[in-house]
Design a protein around this nucleic acid. Structure first.
Length: 227
DNA sequence: GCGACAG
DNA sequence: ATCTTGTCGC
């Protein structure tokens, strides 16, 4: 497994963004959803060129998971990727994309972490606060925290915790013998809800349908854009 | 000082 | 994230 090299980030900028995250952090609320969702959304971003970001939102009926709407938006990239600050790079375009949905979801599944973040402000929490809507994160890789590998069978779970033992999220084996996913609440959502909905969105693939379809359409729209 | 590091 | 062929294993 190769480790990515992260170019040194401007310390002044990092300090400013950190303060902004700390301020947003006070607005995060972890609560169970008031009622079962009728619609759930998935979102994802890709980069057709190094300086162009293309985001996608898909809307699915719940619990049937039937795709009812898909929208996209492309914009210039203005911020580099810095671990821990992903939201500042992708959230602006995700917001513009979200506004194109003619029908809004009851909750949004985001590709990335929720509170499983050094300052509890992963992109799912960040987006939730900006939209003031329920969100949770499903990530393919760990950003922070400790965990033990969940059993190899589908549905197995282990806790993701920080040094003090605080629960940051859950590590979920979404399919037999594949690397587990990292599920954590974002905003107006709690761990139980995030995990329950992720499980309810599995259809035989590693990725739950909202993010899997968002991934798929991001790829399709990208091909369309390159023409 | 040495690792770790979402997408 | 992105570039990129074949190949190992269920």
């Amino acid at each position: 497994m190769y480790r990515p090299y992260h170019p040194p980030a401007d310390p002044v900028v990092v300090r400013e963004l950190t303060q902004e995250q700390e301020a947003m952090r006070t607005r995060v609320r972890l609560l169970p959803l008031p009622q079962e969702p009728s619609f759930i959304a998935g979102c994802d971003s890709s980069f057709p060129t190094p300086d162009t970001i293309l985001s996608v939102f898909v809307l699915l009926r719940f619990p049937s998971l039937e795709l009812v709407e898909k929208v996209w938006n492309a914009a210039p990239v203005t911020v580099p990727y810095v671990p821990g600050f992903l939201a500042f790079r992708e959230a602006p375009n995700l917001l513009q994309t979200y506004e194109k949905l003619t029908q809004k979801p009851d909750i949004i599944m985001v590709d990335g972490h929720g509170i499983a973040h050094p300052r509890r402000m992963g992109i799912a929490a960040h987006l939730g606060v900006l939209l003031d809507r329920p969100t949770f994160g499903v990530a393919k890789q760990k950003l922070t925290g400790n965990y033990t590998e969940p059993a190899i069978t589908r549905g197995s779970l282990t806790p993701l915790t920080d040094r003090s033992g605080e629960l940051l999220g859950e590590v979920l084996r979404s399919k037999d013998k594949v690397n587990p996913l990292f599920v954590s609440p974002g905003h107006l959502c709690d761990q139980a809800t995030a995990t329950r909905l992720t499980l309810a969105c599995l259809r035989g693939y590693k990725l739950p349908e909202p993010t899997r379809l968002a991934d798929y359409w991001a790829e399709e729209f990208k091909k369309e854009l390159r023409k």
